[in-house]
C-alpha cells in the first residue's frame, strides 16, 4: 500500500499544525509542515503530495476577517497550482481557519467556479467559543473524508467566526441537492436546535461542507483534537480507545493507499 503524503500548510498565525501532523501520522500518513513562502517559491512542490491540509489557527491574526488574507494570498500566488491539485482528485481539507480560507478563496463549495459563494461570519453570540458539539452526518454525502462514520459523532469547536451563510437561497438549495452538506450541529439524539446546540447561528446548522466531487472538505470542528478517547470531555470514544477524528484522517489515508 502506498503511504499517503500530506502537506500541512503553515504561515504566520497558523497554530494547529503540530497536532494535525501528529493526527495524520498516527493514521498512517507521512506528513510535512510546509510554509506558504516555500510553496510560493517552489511552485511545483505541491504536486508531490496526495493530501493538502489547511490547518486551524489565526492566519495573519485573522486581520480584516478570519482566513481572508490567507485566501487572498493563495488566490493571488498559487491559483493554478491549487486548482490543478484539486482537479486531479487529490484530497484537500480545511479545518476551522482552513475552512474559512477555503470558502473565502472560493475553492468550496465549487472549485470549478473558484468564486466565493458562502462564508463563515461572526458567531451570533459575538464571541469566541470553545466547546464540544454533536454533529449529524449525511449518509447521502459522497465526501471521501467522512465515510464510515455513524449518524452522530462529537468533536470540539473553537472559533469566533463560524456562522455558515450562503450568498443566496439558490446556493443553499444546490448544496443540499448535491448532498454537499457533510455535518450539521445537533443534540445527542440528532435533533437540531438553537444555541448552544448550534454554537454560532449557522444557516440550517451547517458545520461542514464538501465539493460535489467529495475530495475537498471544509469543517469548523477540529477532528485532529479527537484521535483518541482520552481527548474528549467524557474520556470515551469508540472501541474504548479512539476518537472520531481518527476515522476522518484514516479515510483520507486509505483512499490514497
Amino acid at each position: 500500500m502506498k503511504k499517503a503524503k500530506a502537506l500541512i500548510l503553515t504561515t504566520a498565525g497558523i497554530n494547529c499544525d503540530f497536532e494535525t501532523q501528529a493526527a495524520l501520522n498516527i493514521c498512517g500518513a507521512r506528513s510535512e509542515r510546509v510554509h506558504l513562502h516555500e510553496l510560493i517559491s517552489k511552485k511545483n512542490k505541491l504536486q508531490n503530495y496526495d493530501i493538502l491540509v489547511f490547518p486551524g489557527g489565526f492566519s495573519y491574526g485573522d486581520d480584516i476577517a478570519s482566513g481572508k488574507i490567507l485566501a487572498y494570498q493563495i488566490k493571488d500566488k498559487l491559483k493554478d497550482e491549487i486548482l490543478k491539485f484539486a482537479q486531479s482528485k487529490k484530497l484537500i481539507i480545511g479545518i476551522c481557519n482552513g475552512f474559512q480560507a477555503l470558502v473565502k478563496m472560493g475553492l468550496l463549495p465549487d472549485e470549478k467556479t473558484f468564486k466565493q459563494s458562502v462564508t463563515l461570519y461572526y458567531n451570533d453570540s459575538g464571541k469566541f467559543e470553545c466547546r464540544w458539539v454533536y454533529l449529524k452526518t449525511n449518509p447521502q454525502n459522497n465526501c471521501i473524508w467522512t465515510k464510515n462514520l455513524p449518524e452522530i459523532i462529537c468533536l470540539p469547536i473553537a472559533h469566533g467566526e463560524g456562522k455558515f451563510i450562503t450568498k443566496d437561497e439558490k446556493i443553499l438549495k444546490n448544496l443540499k441537492k448535491n448532498n454537499q452538506v457533510v455535518f450539521k450541529y445537533c443534540d445527542a439524539k440528532g435533533d437540531f436546535g438553537k444555541y448552544p446546540i448550534c454554537p454560532n447561528g449557522s444557516q440550517e446548522n451547517i458545520a461542514a461542507i464538501s465539493n460535489s466531487g467529495g475530495n475537498i472538505f471544509g469543517l469548523m470542528p477540529h477532528p485532529e483534537r479527537f484521535i483518541f478517547a482520552l481527548q474528549s470531555v467524557t474520556k470515551k470514544g469508540f472501541d474504548d480507545q479512539f476518537g472520531w477524528g481518527k476515522i476522518i484522517f484514516e479515510n483520507a489515508v486509505n483512499y490514497i493507499g
Binding site: 480584516i64 476577517a65 459563494s117 458562502v118
Partner: peptide, 9 residues
Amino acid sequence: QRLLTDAVS
C-alpha cells in the same frame, strides 16, 4: 472588493 470585503456578508 478583493481584500477588505467579504463577498457574501
